[in-house]
Amino acid sequence: MLKIDIHTHILPKNWPNLKEKYGYGGFIHLDHHKCGCARMFQDDKFFREIEANCWDPDVRLTECATHQVDVQVLSTVPVMFSYWAKPEDAYDLSRFLNDHIAGVVQQHPSRFIGLGTIPMQSTELAIKELERCVNELGLAGVQIGSNVNDRNLDDAAFFPIFEAAEKLGAAAFVHPWNMMGKELMPKYWLPWLVGMPAETSRAICSLIFGGVLERLPNLRIAFAHGGGSFPATIGRIEHGFDVRPDLCAVDNSVNPRKYLKQMYFDSLVHDPLKLKYMVDLVGADRIALGTDYPFPLGELAPGKLIETTAFSDEIKAQMLHGTALKWLNLDKAQFIN
């Protein structure tokens, strides 16, 4: 059964010293301190350690073979978004990262699909790079963050970007990052365990209540980590909409539950009961295999949750590849040898 993983991250093995190139700090650099391992630093602050599977396509393909993953959708590591940087510098870095992803896809067109990154802090430059990603590089769409410098995704500056994505037929993948309240959660990895799910719900609610999804019904947008806390709290969100329309329905008078069948979600929920709930809530045709490869908080045996949960073969096939193809607007035939 064809298996497409829509949520995987990749980096180039090397890139220029961005602090020297742009003249100020805050950017990520790699320290290849031993064979097959590198430390990610933001200036002098350690961020995380990565291995060769984060940059070497051959290592990725070997690990894909182990888990019978046929296709990976590649996107950058969110810390590389650099929305805080000067727009022209984030644009330049986006081009570099997107050229790298496009190159990997060109080398293995039946094994990888690419999503670009765009400088969301500049509407003009973001649209310019989005158009290049789709029209010149042949990428399927873009990955964006759950907020942009603490601005929610319903901000008027972002609407033209989403509108351009809809017109281009580009898939959009929203990934949590820069988690709100992280300063208040310094222990226990809470920004990743608590903040990330809340971040995704923040993004979804902003797009719903802000009327973005209502105005762009053909925008193919997916959310990481099973939509975070949003699916589990849709009842509360809907109830709030019903009882306090003066607060919730100020920009969009449509019940938020309507949009459950307008969004896509990856399957990264780590719990068979939650996955069953998601299928009941939105349908298998809205859920696609996603693992957050190659990071440890992801699904370490890609597809296992779907394959070992009590679903019919038809529903499993839908989540393992059918939904991904629908979201990406791609043909299954190009990935079957």
Rank of each mutant, 00 (worst) to 15 (best):
Q262S: 15
L328Q: 01
N14T: 12
K187A: 12
E88H: 11
R202N: 15
A198M: 13
D331T: 01
G210Y: 01
N178A: 12
G116M: 08
P296I: 02
P231L: 10
M180W: 08
F112G: 10
L125E: 05
F41S: 10
L139W: 00
N178I: 02
K326S: 11
N98F: 02
F27V: 01
D154S: 14
P16D: 09
L74E: 09
H270F: 14
E88L: 06
L97G: 05
Y293C: 07
L61I: 12
V212M: 13
D92L: 04
N17W: 01
K182E: 13
H270T: 03
M120W: 04
N53H: 09
Q334H: 00
A65M: 11
K316T: 01
G103R: 08
C35R: 15
F311N: 04
F96C: 08
L168H: 04
L325H: 00
E20F: 03
R95S: 07
L139F: 02
R39Q: 09
I204P: 13
L247I: 06
N135K: 14
Y264M: 12
L275S: 06
D313Q: 11
C133A: 02
Y91Q: 10
G23N: 08
N147V: 03
S206Y: 08
D58W: 09
K128S: 07
N147S: 12
L137Y: 02
V148N: 07
L330C: 10
A170L: 07
L325F: 00
W327M: 15
L168R: 02
G26V: 01
H225I: 06
K182P: 01
C205F: 00
Q121N: 13
S146N: 13
V194S: 07
A164F: 00
F162C: 12
V105Y: 08
N147G: 05
G298I: 02
Y22L: 06
M196T: 07
N255C: 10
N53S: 11
N135H: 08
K332F: 02
P186E: 06
Q262E: 15
F41R: 11
L328W: 00
Q107M: 08
N98C: 07
L275C: 10
Q68R: 14
L213I: 06
I118M: 10
V73G: 12
G145A: 11
Q72P: 05
V73M: 15
A65L: 12
I10Q: 00
A203K: 06
T62S: 14
K274D: 11
L125M: 12
C64M: 15
D56I: 02
K34Y: 01
T117G: 05
G116I: 02
D58Q: 13
W84D: 11
M80E: 14
G145Y: 01
I144L: 14
K34N: 08
C205T: 04
V243C: 10
G228F: 00
R286D: 09
G298C: 06
E63F: 07
V269N: 11
G240N: 10
V148T: 05
H225G: 07
I237D: 15
F158M: 11
S122Y: 03
